[in-house]
């Protein structure tokens, strides 16, 4: 399990802002093996800073990062896969060689690195581009190479900062499948993203960060439950005033009346609706992650 607790980080004051910038204000969460954790939050909320601290690129002022119960050190990080927010590749180096090189740096033998590279290139649809220099690839293809670099050594943990940004829908699917496979193999995956539908679809759990603090976290189901249930009832030709006294909003759409209600006795509401007219729809509204997110960071 990867446990991140009580991380604090203040960036040194730039000239003009005397007290510096508090980027992380006690953020903490945990990711279990085989769990896909979606890390969401507004721009500047502190996602990248958190990931950099986990990868040892930045030092936290306080707090800890533990992996399998022990403080995370250099030797363990070697078996992590990391995709930084600002993509970094050797522009003049060939795509395939680059992936192999990083595989070897992470401890693979030359042969193993080559084999893993071949597989990844195949998987990411880059086999024909193997010998092209990175600078000659399109942005999205460079992005795929960057992903391959993070994945080549079969990492024990994956930390990916906005891995989906800039990918076309096909590549998004390929990457999603690749990540899900790794996850099923027991690898904890943390990725940040602003594509909330994608996070909602892929992630077992989600953490919403705001101003350096974790404001909500858990499975998407948990987060929804915390939001409270909203009931949506659609009745055609209802007698006016049937919903008086219910804790909800009634709106009119043609000859249909739509009631959105939070709380209250759902069975009682159903009985009243049937009595009032023809019930076309009666169900619990699922708030989207976007709605939960807006609510949480508000």
């Amino acid at each position: 399990m990867l446990e991140i607790s009580e991380l604090r980080k203040r960036f040194a004051a730039a000239p003009g802002s005397p007290e510096g910038k508090l980027a992380l204000d006690g953020i903490g969460f945990a990711v279990r093996p085989g769990e896909m954790f979606g890390f969401v939050g507004a721009n500047g909320a502190g996602k990248t800073t958190t990931m950099r601290i986990v990868m040892g690129v930045l030092k936290a002022d306080a707090g800890s990062v533990n992996w399998q119960g022990k403080p995370l050190g250099y030797a363990e990080r070697q078996r992590f896969g990391y995709m930084p927010e600002e993509r970094g590749l050797y522009q003049k180096m060939r795509a395939g060689e680059q992936i192999e090189y990083f595989g070897q740096l992470h401890g693979l033998s030359a042969a193993a690195a080559k084999k893993a590279t071949d597989e990844l290139l195949e998987r990411l649809g880059l086999t024909e581009r193997r010998n092209d220099s990175v600078e000659s690839l399109s942005l999205g293809n460079q992005q795929r190479v960057q992903l391959a670099v993070a994945l080549v050594h079969e990492p024990e943990v994956l930390i990916l900062d906005e891995p989906f940004s800039g990918l076309d829908p096909i590549a998004v699917e390929a990457l999603a499948t690749a990540l899900q496979e790794r996850c099923r193999g027991g690898v904890p995956v943390i990725f940040s993203s602003h594509q909330l539908e994608l996070v909602e679809r892929l992630c077992d759990s989600v953490g919403i960060v705001s101003a350096g603090r974790m404001v909500a976290s858990g499975t998407v189901g948990d987060l929804r439950a915390a939001e409270g249930r909203t009931l949506r009832v659609v009745v055609r030709g209802a007698t006016p005033g049937w919903a008086d006294g219910l804790p909800g909003e009634l709106s009119l759409a043609g000859d249909r009346q739509v009631l959105l209600v939070t709380g209250g006795d759902d069975q009682e509401i159903l009985r009243r609706a049937i009595k009032a007219g023809h019930v076309e729809h009666f169900g619990v509204e699922q708030p989207s992650l976007t709605e939960i997110f807006k609510e949480a960071v508000a």
């Binding site: 250099y74 990080r77 990391y82 600002e86 970094g88 590749l89 050797y90 990083f102 740096l105």
Partner: peptide, 17 residues
């Protein structure tokens, strides 16, 4: 500077010293 400016160091230094 190539490595620092392009942030390759971030990945490099998560695997070597």
């Amino acid at each position: 500077v190539e490595e620092k400016g392009s942030r390759i160091v971030e990945i490099l230094l998560s695997s070597i010293r």
